[in-house]
C-alpha cells in the first residue's frame, strides 16, 4: 500500500459513507412522508410523539415484505385467504 493511496482511499470511503448517509436520509424522509400521508388518507389521528414508533414499525414491516417479495412464485399461484390447514 503506497503512502499516496491512503488519502485517496480514505476520500473514496468518506464519499461512499456520505452517499449512504444521504440515501438513508432520503429513504427515512420518504418513509416519514408516507407515514404522514397515510395517516391523513386513513383518517387516523397521528400525534407527533407517535411518529417515530409508527415509522419504526412500518420500516420493520417493509423489511419483512421485501423478504417475502424476493421469493419468486409462478404467476398462477393462488393466494390462501380462506386458509385450510
Amino acid at each position: 500500500m503506497s503512502r499516496k493511496s491512503i488519502p485517496r482511499k480514505a476520500k473514496t470511503a468518506r464519499r461512499i459513507r456520505s452517499l449512504k448517509r444521504s440515501s438513508r436520509a432520503k429513504k427515512s424522509d420518504a418513509l416519514a412522508g408516507l407515514v404522514a400521508a397515510s395517516a391523513q388518507a386513513l383518517a387516523v389521528p397521528l400525534e407527533p410523539a407517535w411518529h417515530t414508533g409508527v415509522k419504526f414499525n412500518l420500516q420493520l414491516l417493509l423489511a419483512h415484505a421485501a423478504r417475502v417479495d424476493a421469493f419468486v412464485l409462478p404467476d398462477e399461484t393462488e393466494p390462501a385467504p380462506v386458509f385450510r390447514a
Partner: peptide
C-alpha cells in the same frame, strides 16, 4: 402505545405484500 404503533403501521402497508404473503403461504 406499543400495540397502537404496530397496528397503525399495519394499516399503512400496501395490499401487494399481503397478497404475496398469502400466495407464499400456499407454497
Amino acid at each position: 402505545p406499543a400495540v397502537r404503533d404496530r397496528l397503525i403501521a399495519g394499516a399503512m402497508l400496501p395490499a401487494s405484500p399481503v397478497v404475496k404473503a398469502q400466495k407464499f403461504r400456499r407454497w
